[in-house]
């Protein structure tokens, strides 16, 4: 999502873009059921406010105009990162990107998640933006969904009808559209225990900071000596939603890993991707970058563990 202001001629420039927000009602409910009830009763007029690093710019750009913002700042059960029995890691939805970066649990078990979080926005954004927001806003180039999908993450949703777990890869419906019901709040992200031996995320962007991904590629593998027992590849900014490169994964399963095989997997992932042309790159260029970074991500996940 590029800012129209500085991109004259490429995007429609909106004259007199309002940098002041329109009026809206604000609620900061003290409990989850109260928050869900409020969302259920307000329907599409309401939007959840977590960090606000996506919602507020979208409101300023007049892309959305919610009449009600429901802040989840008082829902303290949505914070914290912890390991639970069964080797699961549970990450509260309000966890900020910098909290992911600095989490000892993640640094020990899934450094790849810290690395992905560190590539988001800039320091100020990472201090405020949340893992929940990064998922719910369903931006195709978001950095956390690919690595979390590669790790097989689930999201925990609470609505007026109760609680449910949803595989993260099923949470997206299209650009900016999630498959989460309007009355549901994402409360946690769960990385299940697994036998994966390595994972990594490569973000390819025009700048090291403050840039959206041209493509993002996450890979997770289970290696047994030279043999790849399991491979999961997830692509960002390569389709309308984050996507798995399932044919490339299938290609790798049970095979002895060679440089040629990785090259073939990269080609396969590129063929599966549904890239499109945007200001950050053409569809062809992006597809080729999927090939390059799939190969690199696999190689790193195989060699360097969770890195």
């Amino acid at each position: 999502m590029t800012r129209p202001l500085t991109r004259c001629g490429q995007n429609e420039v909106k004259r007199g873009m309002a940098m002041y927000l329109p009026d809206f009602d604000y609620y900061a409910p003290a409990s989850l059921p109260e928050a869900c009830a409020l969302l259920a009763q307000s329907g599409p007029r309401a939007k959840v406010l977590a960090g606000g690093t996506d919602v507020l710019p979208m409101m300023k750009k007049e892309k959305i105009a919610p009449e009600i913002l429901v802040s989840i700042k008082k829902l303290h059960q949505l914070t914290g990162i912890r390991e639970t029995p069964g080797n699961k890691v549970v990450i509260g939805a309000r966890t900020t990107h910098n909290e992911l970066v600095n989490s000892p649990v993640l640094q020990k078990k899934y450094l790849s998640v810290c690395v992905a979080a560190h590539r988001i926005g800039n320091n100020q954004i990472r201090n405020v933006g949340t893992i929940g927001g990064n998922i719910v806003n369903a931006v195709p180039s978001a950095d956390l969904p690919p690595i979390l999908i590669a790790l097989g993450a689930l999201i925990k949703l609470t609505g007026t009808g109760g609680e449910r777990d949803l595989p993260l890869e099923e949470a997206f419906a299209g650009p900016g559209r999630s498959a989460i019901s309007p009355d549901e709040i994402l409360t946690a992200v769960i990385i299940p225990g697994s036998s994966l031996t390595g994972s990594t995320y490569f973000k390819f962007a025009h700048r090291r900071s403050g840039a959206l991904a041209v493509v993002g590629v996450a890979a997770a593998v289970t290696m047994e000596g030279e043999v790849c027992r399991e491979a999961r590849i997830a692509l960002g900014a390569a389709a309308p939603t984050p996507m798995r490169a399932k044919k490339a994964e299938e290609l790798l399963r049970g095979r002895v890993v060679t440089e040629e095989l990785l090259e073939e997997a990269g080609r396969c992932a590129a063929a599966e991707s549904k890239t499109r042309t945007s200001i950050r790159g053409s569809a062809d260029y992006r597809r080729d970058m999927v090939r390059v970074f799939t190969k690199r991500a696999l190689r790193k996940a195989i060699k360097d563990g969770h890195s």
Partner: peptide, 13 residues
Amino acid sequence: GKAVDSCLILAVE
């Protein structure tokens, strides 16, 4: 104590 962009924070928050 953390650096944040004050243009993206509501006073009520």
